[in-house]
Amino acid sequence: MKQVTVYSKNACASCVMVKKWLTIKKIEYTEVNTDMHPEALEDAVKLSGAATMPVIVVEDSETLAKHISVGYKPAQLASLVVA
């Protein structure tokens, strides 16, 4: 089982696209909106090492392995969440 968390912000086209892509693929996700929770911005930077949004965290609930994707990259997302 994969757990998907999307760190997003409001005026962010790539965030909209990631959420749209996950919805079309029927993949459930938890959204952390960093405009509503500014303290989470730092978490997103720590996780990704990047100063950009969105940050997508895919965690395997059995192995607890965490994979991070930054921005809207459908091919990378597919390999992380569908596999």
């Binding site: 912000k9 005026a11 962010c12 086209a13 790539s14 960093t34 911005l41 100063a51 950009t52 949004m53």
Partner: peptide, 10 residues
């Protein structure tokens, strides 16, 4: 960066 609305807030 190439997108101000995306990354400016950082």
């Amino acid at each position: 960066h190439y997108c101000a609305t995306c990354d400016g807030a950082f």
